[in-house]
Amino acid sequence: MSATSDGFSAGQRAAIDKAIREAETASRYEFSVYVGAADGATRPFAERLHASLSTPARSVLLMVDPAARMFEVVTGAEVRRVLDDGAVALAAVAMQTDFASGDLVGGITRGLQQLAGAARSPQVLHTDNP
């Protein structure tokens, strides 16, 4: 039986806050991270969380349910123009590796870095519009 925990330490919270700030600075979009149990199905719950943000269209939400071993990334309509679902899926694979090894904080910070990196990449007309 594995040990249990009572939430993040101050240092871990600071690391997640720092990763959020850096992602927002890099991409100019809003990022938020929810870690906890989903109320009902994971995806609809994550979408409700995302919709309750102040500027959902410009926001990216990462929801991790450690107990159910699931996570969701929800992007707003405006973010989605730059950060498409394929790029999110790539970041999800990177996060999946860390989460599977039990490193929640590492997976969250790595995922935010990758999402922000993909969100800031400029659209190039000759490749995006063939």
Binding site: A3, D6, S9, D17, S32, L49, S54
Partner: peptide, 23 residues
């Protein structure tokens, strides 16, 4: 408060929302 989260542990804490709304 109990021990803080360590990699590999099961999570039993309340949900935490970083960068979420006040509500």
């Amino acid at each position: 408060k109990g021990d803080s989260y360590e990699p590999g542990q099961a999570w039993r804490s309340e949900g935490e929302w970083f960068g979420g709304p006040l509500k």
